[in-house]
């Protein structure tokens, strides 16, 4: 442990109201701790900034999955284990359940939370592409009150959020995807478990009664400074009937959506090629007529 832990102060609020006061009144900017799974890696390497923390783990009001008639609401501190094991959620949101099952390993999933994954704002986050593809809405709160932000408005730049530093994520709202739509999730990581993604993609697609795409969401991670919606690829598919040409065009459009780099885990060329290949896989899986001849 390269960080001098004895120099750090950790506050343990008993409820959300107290946590929000701590986030507002603390000198400097206290750092909220959810599962702490990413934080601990930085503390161990001695690269974590800040010396004041607010530990949210005991805030039971931020945990749990609530099923509604047209949406689910997932508390910010809900762990990925809870998400992957929730049968009703997995039926409605298989892309999210699949993502939850590929976060780290089982031990990480037992601690890591959906709110933490969002707030951490890593471009390689596993769950946020699935949440983006599912049109997730983020509930945040400060001592001034609550507001909602569409997830794809939350990420401004590399590890930079449009939230204020005194705001906490309280829940994630997931509207049901359109009936008869197909969901997709694929993480291309460094190995089969305990891995960080090189490319991660989630998608939702539906063909309308006329056989043309009438709903499409494509979101990716590890290919840009933020996890993002692939708007150009989506636009190229909207209103189009499945065909190899449509698939080819979507793939070409996707290259305008992403800006991958060479880094410690992979390289730009690989990420571009795999993003295109995985997009094709998604489209083939949604409808075989997308397959290249």
């Amino acid at each position: 442990m390269r960080t001098a832990l004895s120099t750090l102060a950790v506050a343990r609020p008993r409820d959300l109201a107290e946590a929000l006061v701590l986030m507002r009144d603390g000198a400097g900017r206290p750092i909220p701790i959810a599962g702490g799974t990413d934080l601990l890696v930085y503390l161990n390497a001695g690269t974590q900034k800040g010396d004041r923390f607010v530990d949210l783990r005991s805030l039971a009001e931020l945990r749990g999955i609530r099923a509604g008639t047209d949406r689910f609401t997932v508390g910010a501190l809900t762990t990925f284990s809870e998400i992957r094991e929730h049968a009703a959620l997995a039926r409605r949101f298989p892309a999210l359940a699949a993502a939850a099952a590929e976060v780290g390993g089982r031990q990480i999933q037992n601690r890591a939370t959906v709110g933490g994954n969002i707030a951490n704002a890593s471009p390689a986050a596993d769950s946020t592409p699935a949440l983006l593809a599912l049109d997730a809405i983020v509930h945040v709160r400060s001592s001034d009150g609550a507001r909602v932000i569409a997830l794809d408005r939350l990420f401004r730049g590399y590890r930079d959020l449009t939230m204020r530093p005194d705001e906490l994520i309280t829940a994630v709202e997931l509207p049901f995807a359109p009936e008869r739509s197909v969901q997709f999730f694929r993480k291309v990581g460094t190995r089969r478990a305990q891995s960080i993604s090189k490319v991660v993609m989630a998608g939702v697609l539906r063909l309308g009664r006329d056989g043309r795409v009438d709903h499409v969401r494509i979101a990716l991670g590890s290919v840009a400074p933020v996890t993002l919606r692939a708007r150009a690829a989506e636009a190229s598919l909207a209103g189009i009937a499945p065909s190899p040409v449509a698939s080819y065009r979507a793939r070409a459009a996707l290259m305008d959506d992403i800006a991958p780099i060479d880094d410690i885990r992979s390289d730009r060329e690989y990420r571009r090629a795999v993003s295109g290949n995985v997009l094709e896989q998604f489209l083939r899986s949604a409808d075989p007529r997308f397959a290249r001849g």
């Binding site: 409605r92 298989p94 699949a98 969901q183 998604f282 949604a286 001849g293």
Partner: peptide, 17 residues
């Protein structure tokens, strides 16, 4: 490589690829 294969049965919502 078989082109334009017969359309598969409509997938259920949420079926895995």
């Amino acid at each position: 490589t078989r082109r334009h294969r017969r359309r598969a049965a409509a997938p259920r919502p949420g079926s895995a690829p």
